[in-house]
Design a protein around this nucleic acid. Structure first.
Lengths: 207, 207
DNA sequence: GCAAATGCGGACCATGGGTCCGCTTCTTGC
DNA sequence: GCAAGAAGCGGACCCATGGTCCGCATTTGC
């Protein structure tokens, strides 16, 4: 039971690997051309240490992603309105989606890397599950929304990393404009009433 | 200019390869484990012939996909309402999306293979472009829809192959139920008015 | 300080997309 | 029908990349 504490060179290497990987993914446009050997080399470490520390490529990327996302998840679960649980549902839904979009804009490469990890579906991950569940629950409190489950899937699909990358990268849409469009769309889905107020306030604070 | 007509063994091989690939992709749940060597072997042909005929994996899959999709595109461009150009926009939009969803349900593996072709984004393809442009144009004729461009992206995102696969495959949703949910969502996006009529009529004829 | 456990690293393996090249088969002009 | 040359064939081969192995070095508990 009582696990011996890990060796200090191991923890140092792990940190170095995380930093190196984070840097490499941030630097390269296409996540595919960040190879595991590259990461190991950049951290000044053998490949085996990389795989020992993280298991496989997918897990490494996931760990990086979760680390970056953590502050937002904290803001969502225990922060103030409009992201936190205190916010009324019709306000919180667009806030959640906007936060997710802003996050993906700021972490394009990483988000892309996570969703593009070849074989395994981006849907079969508990990360997606968490967000879907949350969004569904909030949606179900919005009067007039009857299928929170599918609506949550559809709204989340609108902020998928590769779509964001396509719109903001290839098509050169500005981040704020994209956020405004998403806000308008969200408002429309929630019921045409609050469209203006929601779309006007979305592109506000951001890292 | 005047290209000499291709040799008949080449034509035969090409057909055999298409058939074999189609079959293999249909049979295997995960497109990743249909290898190019498999396809060549199944067609009783050398690997080089496969690559000579199609260039690379992506092109092969695209060709299969387009072949299957052709009838629907024809119905869309020159068929009768509700899919064809004669249909009024508020009817045609849900019809288009429903057709797309039904198609992906019927061709899960292929659609999945196409979108999961690793590195290159599913958005940077003229196939996506065609559908997006069409949907945008029709959306812009729907009174009250102001951002046809983003709305088209968002609606198309709701019928992406991996989401469909997740909902219909992993989560065991029936095809008709999924179509009904999409119809309801679409109606909601188009404006709450026509929601009932649209969702009631969607799951009708299908291959 | 010593021994055992833990971790290190780079050579090594497996897999799969894609290419090369000597041989075969088809087409074409007669 | 036949020769000549083009077009096509196939499977051995190449190479990149994720992932593993094992002899050696470092650390830790005592």
């Amino acid at each position: 039971m009582a696990e011996r504490k890990p060796r200090k060179d191991a923890v140092r290497n792990r940190a170095a690997l995380l930093a190196a990987a984070d840097d490499l993914f941030a630097r390269c446009a296409n996540p595919e051309d960040v190879t595991m050997a590259d990461v190991a080399a950049a951290a000044g470490v053998g490949k085996a240490s990389l795989f020992r520390a993280f298991g496989d490529r997918t897990s490494l990327i996931r760990e990086l992603y979760e680390a970056r996302l953590a502050p937002i998840e904290r803001a969502v679960t225990e922060g103030p309105a409009p992201l936190g649980p205190a916010a009324p549902a019709p306000v919180r839904v667009p806030a959640l989606l906007d936060a997710l979009l802003a996050f993906k804009l700021d972490n394009r490469h990483l988000a892309l890397a996570l969703e593009a990890t070849g074989s395994d579906s981006p849907y079969r991950t508990d990360h997606y599950d968490r967000w879907h569940r949350l969004l569904r629950e909030v949606l179900e409190q919005v009067p007039g929304v009857d299928d929170g489950d599918f609506t949550a899937h559809a709204l989340l699909a609108a902020v998928r990393a590769d779509l964001v990358e396509y719109l903001a990268g290839d098509r050169g849409l500005g981040g704020d404009e994209l956020r405004a469009r998403l806000a308008a769309f969200t408002a429309r889905v929630l019921g045409a009433a609050g469209a203006d107020s929601a779309s006007a306030k979305a592109p506000a604070g951001r890292a």
